[in-house]
Design a protein around this nucleic acid. Structure first.
Lengths: 165, 165
DNA sequence: GACCCGGTACTCGGATATAATATGTCCGAGTCTGTACGG
DNA sequence: CCGTACAGACTCGGACATATTATATCCGAGTACCGGGTC
């Protein structure tokens, strides 16, 4: 099991978008150049973010993407689910109902009233995973970055952005 | 992101193996028939379990697989990692080092001393996921099963096993 | 000089190929069991 | 009757195809800007 590459890209892109001056857009082309990733494929991740209302898009010159909400209102979970989907990582195919020993009739009704015990455990793990991701927002990671990066590096990036919007 | 089908199969197989009389083996063929899954492919999952020391194998007639440890000593995490691998679900490709704004020289050394902030969050989510899986053992799920399944259904399964070992 | 209009260039969004991985299948090496044989 | 050697059948383990998914790319629809023309 491995998350898509797009998840990493999307998170980093959102972090960058969080640094945009209000009201401005940054196009896919620049987001791709900034991270040195294929532009056309990155756009698919951004489409997912757009469809889930994480970012807003604008067409034409000086168009592009911007965050649709405040960075403190966008959690990691929002971004991950926009790219990976909201489905649980574990899918129960109910194999307990297969095979020669599977209960039939009245017994089946009793045994299968509750979800499969194996699936319950796996789903609970999935929930705590998502809960952890929901605890962290883009604002948090921006803050962490601001604390560990020298000011001149940050200024450099801001300037790079301003040259393009 | 989605876990392999084999994870579900492996967990259910381990649950069944936990019900084996001590010292006996159950072959892949019967495990596959019990769950109605392709025998040859299931064997790949069991190979993984064997390599990680979750189960022990024996060749020849009356051979097969059995748990290598007590059911209370085998966690869900053990089984999942044996099938899916121990690598984190999130792989950091360090895209922060790419692109025109990436710091160079002394700045780079300062900025990249710690792991990427995005990756740290994703990894922490991965850790809580694994921690949850490590809390539950095969013995727990067996107990849950025993509480929710009527005795005759369980007896039925035990008998089915005894016919084959 | 200010306003309006149209062309142009730029944007996103989805449809289309290719690579990697998960899924499913097959066959060979090894070993335990059961039997036949000899003592 | 008991021990031993052997043949057979059954097991796992890894090598080999196929289906699905992730990765990468391309092109078309739509829109904001910019320049020229008009009032």
């Amino acid at each position: 099991m491995q998350l898509r590459n797009q998840v990493e890209w999307a998170l980093h892109c959102c972090t960058l978008l969080a640094a945009l001056p209000p009201g401005r857009y940054l196009p896919t082309k620049d987001l791709a150049e900034f991270h040195d990733v294929p532009k056309e494929y990155l756009s698919k991740a951004l489409q997912g973010l757009s469809q889930d209302g994480i970012v807003e898009s604008a067409l034409g010159p000086s168009g592009g993407y911007r965050l649709a909400r405040s960075p403190s209102d966008v959690t990691f979970l929002d971004v991950v689910e926009a790219v990976e989907g909201k489905a649980s990582s574990f899918v129960c195919t109910e194999i307990r109902r297969n095979g020669p020993c599977s209960p039939k009739g009245a017994d089946a009704k009793k045994c299968f009233a509750k979800p499969c015990g194996v699936a319950q455990v796996m789903w609970s793990a999935d929930r705590v995973w998502r809960a952890r991701l929901a605890e962290v927002t883009l604002a948090d990671v921006t803050q962490t970055l601001a604390e560990s990066f020298p000011q001149n590096v940050i200024d450099n990036t801001i300037e790079w952005i301003n040259e393009r919007i």
